[in-house]
Every structure is written in structure tokens, then in C-alpha cells.
Amino acid sequence: MYIMELALMLSAFFILTITARVMYLLYNIFRGICNLNSENNSLKTVYCIGSGGHTTELLRIVSHLDAEKYAPRLYIMAMNDVSSEVKIREQERDSTEYQIYRIPRSRNVKQSYVSSVFTTLYATIYTIPIICKFKPDIIFCNGPGTCVPICLVAFLLRCIFVLDCRIVFIESFCRVRTLSLSGKILQWFADIFIVQWPQLTNVCFRGKYFGRLT
């Protein structure tokens, strides 16, 4: 009897704690409180690499950031992406503080929406150990499908106190009037949400506009 009661109380306690944590995180996110003051000398950074234009765009933003502050860097990209790796190696040729990890694609071009639910789930599960091991401080992404599972995992780990990280979402420059699917999802839990066209700030409820970044 006592064990049953104890288990019930414990689970109620956990559920309450997690709910409070999620509400606290969302409150901070929507209020725009996203400061991160690290005790270390650098911030472990994850870059979610997409394909083609997305990669070029994100790598250009990377090149403006202090490579010593945002280090070590982990690039996560899709399994079957060849050209992105060439671009990353080219940009990082003088550095050793970076790694490249590959995860399965969450959605292939022309794949049906129903089957993409399963592939996204698979990609999400695949991502968990990578994020747990690397323990990023910041995650940068700019809209390819691969970034949603990564950010979701990071956010959930943050909810259960495993991780304390910030998600920076930069909507691609090619989005002028509407948000991408990743953008629509991530505006709910990304800490910083950047758009590159002023008219987009009317479409989303918390976009920040700093001009064209790439």
C-alpha cells in the first residue's frame, strides 16, 4: 500500500516539476529572455546543415561569428549529403575544433507526408545520443528539415534538466512573405527567431529583424 502511494506521489511530483519547468522555459522564450552566461571560455555550438542554398547561407553566417568563442563546433547533416561536407571542410580548413555528424533525412524530396512522420521519428531518435553526448550550449539552424528533430530533442532534454541550451533559428533569406515549415514549428520554442525581411515580422509573432545576414 505504502509503495503504491509513494509511487503515485513521486510521479505526481515529477509531472508537476516538468510542467513547471516547461512553463518556465516557454515564459522565458516568449518574453525574449535568452541570456546564457557560460562558466567556460567557449560555447559548444551545433550547426544544423541542410542542403544546397541553406548550407551556403548558414556557413556565411558562421564565418561572421567568433570561431574561438563558438567552439567546439558540431555540424549535423543528412546522410546522403555530399556537397555540404565539401563546403564545411573548405571553410574549416585551418581549424581542428569541429566535427561532422550525419543523421538520416527526416523527409526526402517528394516523400509523402504520412511516411515522413515515421522517418522524422527515426531521425529524432537517432539524434538523441548525439545531442546527449555533445551537450551543446547553442544550436544554430536556418530552416532545412533536419533541424526540427535536432531542436526538438534539445528542447525536450532541456525540459528534463539534462541540458541547458539556446536555439537560434534564422529564417532563410529566400523566405520573403511566408515562413518555412521549420520556421512555423520552431517559432514556438526557439529562443531567438530571426527573419531576414522586414515584412515577415508581421507574419510571425516574435521575429527579430537585423537586416540581411548573408
Binding site: 557560460s38 560555447l43 553566417i61
Partner: peptide, 24 residues
């Protein structure tokens, strides 16, 4: 096309994300 202006964004990031001491 006008040149990109990433500086304000980078400054903003540097103000919210800080590290203990940057070796520079």
C-alpha cells in the same frame, strides 16, 4: 544588390551569449 549587414546580429548574439574570458 546592397551588401549584407550581419554586424548588428553578431553584436546582439555576443551580448546575450557571454563566456568567462575570451582569450584575446
Amino acid at each position: 544588390l546592397a551588401k549584407p549587414t550581419p554586424n548588428n546580429f553578431v553584436k546582439y548574439l555576443d551580448s546575450v551569449f557571454t563566456v568567462k574570458n575570451l582569450s584575446k
